[in-house]
């Protein structure tokens, strides 16, 4: 796989409304790229431009070496109701000129949890089943670029988990661009994110960097007693504050995430702490998302990034 996907100054206008105001996406090959943003920020428009369903008002899209086979999973997927699930999958491959045998079709359906619904007409499918079929119809094409718009929106928590894991498992073999409102999903599988707000790309980069920007606090769970651990942490140079949120649950405010990641194991070991869990304080990605997009309950102001 060579070259990734990039857009340069991508603009899309609908009459007088500017849906995208010149975005420059950089999607490395084999990566799982999360496109996030509030409703109306231009995510679906960007994805539809990438897969060729729309033409840009200005700018360029270069799908380079990964554009050989592009599969698109729109949100709120629908299919002709008189087709069976296996016919949809066969048709999906057939329309791009690929002949697939029964085993491959059944395999694709089993992969998305529809192994028992192979011969059922899709007219009777629930929204969740249609979402799974949407993904199965894309996977059977063995795409080099998979573009999925809110792929897990209609699924229950277990289904959401499965589908998001499945998308994550494609990393390395397939370049995946996934849009989602659910930041936990993005955090789980994406290595790179783009944050859209009002048609502008307000952040693009590694998820880790975004989390670092967000994570000014760590959540550390240790076994009792916690007093020696709190004392040791408070003495560390990179710690700006420690509080025990619940018994055994410490919120550690840090000055620099790099220093915290290096120093935390040392401090915990030195204080004899029995570590249960450690990670960024919950909701941190959401907070930075609110900051970047100027949304959220607090109505925080937008920051260009």
């Amino acid at each position: 796989m060579s070259g990734g996907l990039s857009t340069t100054g991508l603009v899309k206008r609908y009459g007088t409304i500017q849906a995208l105001a010149g975005i420059d996406l950089e999607v490395p090959p084999g990566s799982v790229y999360g496109l996030v943003g509030p409703n109306g920020s231009g995510k679906t428009t960007a994805l539809e431009l990438i897969v060729g369903l729309r033409r840009p008002s200005a700018g360029l899209i270069d799908v380079g070496g990964i554009g050989e086979r592009v599969a698109y999973c729109p949100d709120a997927a629908e299919f002709d109701p008189w087709l069976t699930a296996s016919e949809v999958v066969t048709l999906s491959a057939g329309l791009i000129g690929r002949n697939v045998d029964d085993a491959k079709v059944k395999g694709a359906l089993a992969q998305v949890g529809l192994g028992d619904a192979t011969n059922r007409k899709v007219g009777g499918f629930s929204r969740g089943m249609l979402s799974r079929l949407n993904l199965g119809a894309a996977l059977v094409c063995e795409p080099t670029l998979l573009v999925a718009d809110e792929p897990a929106a209609a699924l229950d928590p277990a289904g959401r988990w499965e589908v998001i894991e499945l998308l994550g498992s494609l990393a390395g073999r397939t370049t995946v661009i996934v849009s989602s409102h659910n930041l936990n999903d993005v955090q789980r599988i994406c290595d790179r994110v783009g944050v859209l707000a009002a048609g502008r790309l307000v952040y693009q980069g590694a998820l880790r960097e975004l989390l670092e920007r967000a994570a000014t606090a760590l959540r550390v769970v240790v076994r009792q007693p916690t007093a020696p651990v709190v004392e040791a942490l408070a003495a560390a140079s990179w710690v700006t504050g420690v509080r025990e949120e619940q018994p055994g649950v410490l919120i550690v405010e840090v000055s620099a995430m790099d220093a915290a990641e290096e120093g935390l194991p040392v401090v915990l070991a030195a204080s004899g702490a029995r570590l249960v869990e450690a990670g960024p304080a919950e909701g941190s990605l959401q907070e930075v998302f609110f900051q970047l997009t100027g949304t959220g309950p607090a109505g925080a102001g937008a920051q260009e990034g």
Binding site: V51, L53, P74, A77, E78, L95
Partner: peptide, 14 residues
């Protein structure tokens, strides 16, 4: 006539 069904066909039949 159906946006979602159209997306299925149009994204595959260029």
């Amino acid at each position: 006539s159906d946006r979602s069904v159209a997306a299925f066909y149009r994204s595959r039949l260029r």
